[in-house]
């Protein structure tokens, strides 16, 4: 891992498009400002890992499973009037 020392207000550039600024240091906490292109996800690592894992876990599904889960919901759907909205 590359380790750099920066002062408050100083930045690190990652490639041409990403800049990380040290905004504030308070005890053991550091506030960072991030400038990145809009098509890149920027979020806390815990959150990123959680969602990443959920997405990967959601892909292993066979085609028949949808019949079984749709049936589980049959009654509820009718109770709500059975209208299906787009997406």
């Amino acid at each position: 891992m590359l380790t750099l020392t920066r002062k408050i207000g100083e930045s690190v550039c990652i490639g041409d498009d990403i800049r990380v600024v040290v905004k504030e240091v308070k005890g053991k906490q550091v506030r960072l400002g991030i400038v990145a292109p809009r098509d890149i996800y920027v979020c806390r690592e815990e959150l990123y890992r959680k969602i990443h894992q959920a997405n990967i876990g959601a892909t292993s599904t066979d085609v028949n499973i949808l019949d079984s889960i749709s049936n589980l919901f049959g009654d509820k759907k009718r109770a709500k009037g059975g209208n299906s909205n787009e997406s």
């Binding site: 997405n55 959601a58 892909t59 599904t61 499973i65 949808l66 019949d67 889960i69 749709s70 919901f73 509820k76 759907k77 709500k80 059975g82 299906s84 909205n85 997406s87």
Partner: peptide, 30 residues
């Protein structure tokens, strides 16, 4: 995005780039 059946509240979201990659979607209000 592919409807499962007309009655089903679930849909498939199929990747156009990977034949194996698909997700099941639904409306959270359901």
């Amino acid at each position: 995005i592919v409807d499962h059946t007309h009655e089903s509240p679930f849909k498939w979201m199929q990747s156009c780039e990977d034949p194996e990659l698909a997700f099941i979607l639904t409306d959270p209000l359901f």
